[in-house]
Design a protein around this nucleic acid. Structure first.
Length: 490
RNA sequence: GGCCCCAUGGUCAAGCGGUUAAGACAUCGCCCUUUCACGGCGGUAACUCGGGUUCGAUUCCCGAUGGGGUCACCA
């Protein structure tokens, strides 16, 4: 294959990128980069009503954060901006191409009013759901030339429609799905150019993919049913078709296509929920594809090396938050201190206002969380000793109960008051000496100690770690409280 | 409803005519351990159904069933 691979990600700027879009962008990027090809970004903003303020920036930022950097585009602000379709509309590109099609008889002007179109609409009820379908009747295809001219001259609003024959079939080839053939009669005369002069996605997409030399068109499987119409467009122009890669859908647990409208998480939502960029990209890559070596954790660079689009699955994949969380925990464990603190410390500060060693507290949580917000709850006891019942002091396996605990804490208190070194090592050394000296079991001594300083049966870290962080004064205060509590309980 | 696509454990996912049907997440149990977690070890759990083709089908073909997608002056 001598042809250079060129792919593109072509989103419409309507808000945050949801996971399905991110996966499409990722696959398009990987297909190109695996062969050292080009990856472009093209903003498809041909629907003026759906424009969302700042959406292009969100797309740019998301692509940058995930490392899916595009290779070319018009100069903009000293850098390489993405291609933007609305800017190309002004250049008259789409109008010119639409006219070429009209000349060839492959498209035609349509002056039908909304009302007339409305009358063509059929409603249909399936499984209790009401759906509306409209099949255009080619009314304007048969308009006399004079009438068309007159309408145009009168400035009557028009639309340009694709002229699809009612006979024959159209076949296109997808690398994953093979040849797909549909009867032309099934293909509606879709609108190419809207009455506001803007092209529809269907048209702009084909024209731009050709003009930009896109070799592999990567898009979601929901486009499979309109693909034959695009094929007809390519044929009508006499252009060579690109290679199609229709990616399987990503669905929710109910097998429904992920969409913003249904409230499914976008990439940015996930970041806000405490996920790591690389983990999200990694996980999403795995939905619909797996490497030959069966590895599951890899960087974008490794992905580029391993990715083979011929191995993309055909069946839809359910987005499994549980597995993403696991993968995220793996990424968190591998994070450098710097990167870990950057996101962990803010979470620690949410619950700790005392002048404690926040980094040490964060360290305690590194292997215990799946997402960053998991940090807050388990460390709250550092800030304030929670209310607890003396029954916590009873632990069969540790061979301890309230009586034993009271005895040990009373025994330990004066010693710990004399102890100056509250570092982890100091405490460890001192207390293990006490343990051997008294012949008690380690757990038997440490259990009541942890209960006293934390008020909890389960804590991140053990008694040593907690006491080190709390420091001598607070540790002793809590131990005295524990003793008082035990004495009061009798 | 028309058209199109899909079908291996709960989820992701190997497999591409002959396998004890991998692996990961989840789940369960054990070990490690002062708790929790990490880590280690092990268990439960799958080829939608019916016809073919074949010496032999999870694998190929057809059909059924199930699920999904799509049918806009949205992309």
């Amino acid at each position: 294959m001598l042809q250079r691979i060129r792919t593109r990600y072509a989103p419409s700027p309507t808000g945050r990128m949801h996971v399905g879009n991110l996966r499409t962008a990722l696959y398009a990027y990987l297909i190109a980069k695996h062969e050292d090809g080009d990856f472009l970004l093209r903003i498809e903003d041909t629907d003026q009503e759906r424009q969302v303020e700042g959406a292009v920036e969100i797309i740019n930022r998301t692509l940058e954060k995930t490392g899916l950097l595009w290779d070319e585009g018009p100069d903009k602000d000293g850098g390489v901006g993405p291609y933007v379709q609305s800017e190309r509309v002004t250049a008259g590109i789409y109008m010119d191409y639409a006219k070429k099609l009209i000349e060839k008889g492959e498209a035609y002007y349509c002056f039908c009013t909304k009302e007339r179109l409305e009358s063509l609409r059929q409603t249909l009820t399936v499984d209790g759901e009401t759906k509306e379908i409209t099949i255009y009747d080619k009314h304007c295809l048969h308009l006399p030339k004079e009438e068309i001219e007159a309408n145009l001259a009168a400035g009557k609003p028009f639309v340009v429609r694709q002229n699809t024959p009612n006979e024959g079939t159209t076949t296109f080839t997808d690398v994953l799905y093979g040849d797909i053939t549909v009867p032309n009669a099934e293909l509606d005369d879709m609108i190419l150019l809207k009455s506001d002069g803007f092209p529809t996605y269907n048209f702009a997409n084909v024209v731009d993919d050709h003009l930009m030399g896109i070799s592999h068109v990567v898009r979601g499987n929901e486009y499979l049913s309109s693909a034959p119409k695009y094929t007809r467009l390519y044929h009508a122009f006499g252009w060579e078709e690109p290679v199609y890669v229709h990616c399987p859908l990503i669905t929710d647990e109910h097998k429904k296509k992920l969409s913003k409208r249904s409230g499914h998480s976008s990439y940015e939502d996930l970041v806000e929920q405490g996920f790591v960029d690389e983990a999200i990209v990694n996980y999403v890559a795995l939905l619909g594809w797996s490497p030959e070596d069966n590895e599951e954790i890899f960087s974008l660079e490794e992905l580029v090396k391993k990715f083979d689009y011929h191995k993309i699955n055909k069946s839809p994949a359910v987005f499994d938050m549980t597995k993403l969380r696991w993968l995220n925990s793996e990424y968190i464990k591998r994070l450098s201190d710097e990167k870990y603190y950057e996101r962990a410390l803010p979470e620690v500060r949410k619950v700790i206002s005392k002048p404690l060693d926040l980094k040490k507290i964060a360290d305690l949580m590194k292997t215990r969380i799946e997402v960053f917000p998991d940090i807050a709850e388990p460390i709250r006891f550092f800030e304030e000793l929670p209310e607890y019942g003396v029954d916590l002091y009873t632990h069969k396996k540790m061979k301890t109960d309230t009586a034993v605990s009271l005895e040990i804490l009373r025994d330990l208190l004066p010693r710990l008051e004399r102890q100056e070194d509250y570092s982890l090592e100091g405490l460890k050394e001192y207390l293990s000496a006490y343990i051997t000296e008294t012949g008690r079991k380690t757990g038997q001594v440490l259990w009541p100690l942890r209960i006293a300083v934390s008020g909890l049966a389960n804590t991140p870290g053990g008694a040593y770690e907690i006491m080190e962080i709390l420091g001598k004064e607070e540790s002793l205060a809590r131990i005295r409280q524990g003793i008082a509590k035990l004495e009061a309980a009798g």
